[in-house]
Amino acid sequence: MSAYEMRSNFGPLHVLTGNQVRDALEDVLQKFTVVAPVMADNKLVYDEVNDVSDIVLNDALPYKSPKDVVFPRVEDVMRFLENRVEEAQVIKPVLLVGAKPCDLAAMKVLDEVFTGEQGRYKDSFYSNRRDFLIIVGMNCREKKSGCFCEERGINPAFSQDCDGFLTLQDDGAVYEPLTEKGADLFSGATAASENSVSPGEETLVLNTSEAEVFTAMPWEKYAEGCIGCGTCTFICPTCHCFNLRDSEKKGIVTRTRVWDSCMYPKFTLHAGGHNPRTRKYERFRQRVLHKYLYIPENYGCTACTGCGRCIRSCPGGLNIRNTVLDIQRRLAEKREVHV
C-alpha cells in the first residue's frame, strides 16, 4: 500500500491562500481550545491562543516542546476525600497547530511510553488528554544551528504522525488530512496529493550494549560543562520523568504529578540516604543512554528527535549529538582493532 493511498482516505488536499489559512484558523478557534506557536517575551512558545493574529506559523522552532499539552508540568491526578478517592477527568478537546515533524516524532515516543501500544503500562491521565487532542503538523524549511533531525531519520518536510499536515509555501499553504479527526479542519481549493513520504535513514543511533559503553567512554569529559540545571530535560520533547507529590489542604489530600529531571542530584536519592548517581557525569550518561539505548531496547524507538533544543539552550555547552557521534567513533575504532 503506497503512502498516497493510505492518506487519501480522509479527503483530498486543500490548497489555501494566506487569507484562507487565517480564516480557517479563525474557524477552528471557535470550535476548540487551540495551542499554537505564539510569541511570549521575545520567545516563540507553544501556548493557548485567544486571537488568530497571535499565531506565528513560520520556520522557527518554539524553544519549548509541545509535550505539556498532553503531559503538563504540574497536574493534579487524584484527590483523597474523607471516604472516597477521585481521579482527575479531562473533557476539553485541544487542537495543537503548527507542531514540527521533530515534535510529532517525539509525541510518538511519548505515546509509546505512556499508552503502551505494546501492551505495557497505560497511563490514564496521559491517554485521556491524548484522546482529546487533535494535532495539525507543519513543515519546517530551515535548519537551525544544532538541529540534526535528518540524522535521526526525520523528514522535516512531512510527517504522518498527526491528524493533518499543513505544508507552508511562499504564498499560502497546503493542508492534507491524515486521519478522520483532521478531515475537515481546513478547506480550500482541492487538489490531488503529490507529497511523497520519504522517511530518511537513521544514522545517529547507538548499536551497542550498556556493558560496552557504560564505563569505557570518557563520560566525565562529555559532562564537564554541566551545571545540573535540568534545562535540557524540561525543554526536551521526549523527556517524561515525573514525580508524584501528596499535599494536604483543608483535609483533602491532592496527589500532584510534576515533572522531574534526571539531571538533578536528588533525582535518584533513596529514602535510606543512598544515592546511586551522585556525580554529574553519571547523570549525563543516564540521559544519553536513556535516549539512545534504554528506550530503543524497551520500546523499539530512539527517544531523541534531533530538535537540537538542548544543544541550543545548555548553559554549559553540552552536546548530545557530538557525544553520540564520539561514542560511535570510539566504538568503530575499537571494533576495527578487534578484527
Binding site: S145, G225, R312, G317
Partner: peptide
C-alpha cells in the same frame, strides 16, 4: 571558553 557553533555562543571549556 571555546567557540561552540551548535550552541551559538562560546561555552565553558577546560
Amino acid at each position: 571558553l571555546r567557540n561552540n557553533p551548535e550552541a551559538g555562543w562560546p561555552t565553558p571549556y577546560c
